[in-house]
Amino acid sequence: MTAPAQPAPSQPTAPASTPDVVVVDVRDPADTLPPPPGDPAPRGPRVVDLQVRILDENDRRAAVNRELFRARGLRALNFVSSPGAGKTTLLQRTLGTLAPELGCAVLVGDLETANDAQRLRRPGVPVAQITTGGTCHLDASMIQRGLAAIPLDGVRLLFIENVGNLVCPASFDLGENRRITLVSCTEGEDKPLKYPPMFSSAHAVVLTKIDVADAMGFDRALALANIRRAAPQAEVFEVSAKTGEGCDAWCAYLRALL
């Protein structure tokens, strides 16, 4: 990055190779529908029968996102898991391998703080932190606002790290091409059976932290059997983002999406 010819005096200068993280705060949605205007000639009470999907607005925006991804030739991946399952660490490892060879960008959602985005920033990888201010999931409109905040030219893989939550994100289509559900060896082997929607809707399931499985007394075979029962459609990966075990197969899966 080169210094501008006329530097803006009030602009803090970021380190040349690691641009500041963009923070998109969506707690005050700018795009909610206005209340209905008053009708000058009110009519008597009447019943209107409807068949409207409650999440129709989200699904419509998700379709817009999906079309944008298609038009740009990029693949978007929605990473979901409980808090602490290792989404950010897996993404750090993944970016370390893939960012040098193909364009990557990251949108990361949390209730508060830009900590995860700070962890994920690296040269050449646009990162936006979406702070939801209490909302327990990302929705399609938040993705639209996050996408508007980062440069997308040259991006082939868009990693979306959802809010850590194994329930709510399942209901909200972001327009992603693949939904990746993580479950870690420090959680129970029966997690997939307790939270079926997050697994039954996954394209891939990643069992993380396998380096500590033995120390935790974690029954890997049982966990894998439960994953296959809850997500028979999903590809399954066993990785340790710490040691790198299993990451070759995982990164090969991502490359093959393009």
């Binding site: 008597g44 009470p45 009447r46 019943v47 209107v48 409807l50 409207v52 999907r53 409650i54």
Partner: peptide
């Protein structure tokens, strides 16, 4: 289903 199926309005 997650639907809005009826409104009573005036």
């Amino acid at each position: 289903e997650m639907h809005l199926v009826r409104l009573e309005i005036s």
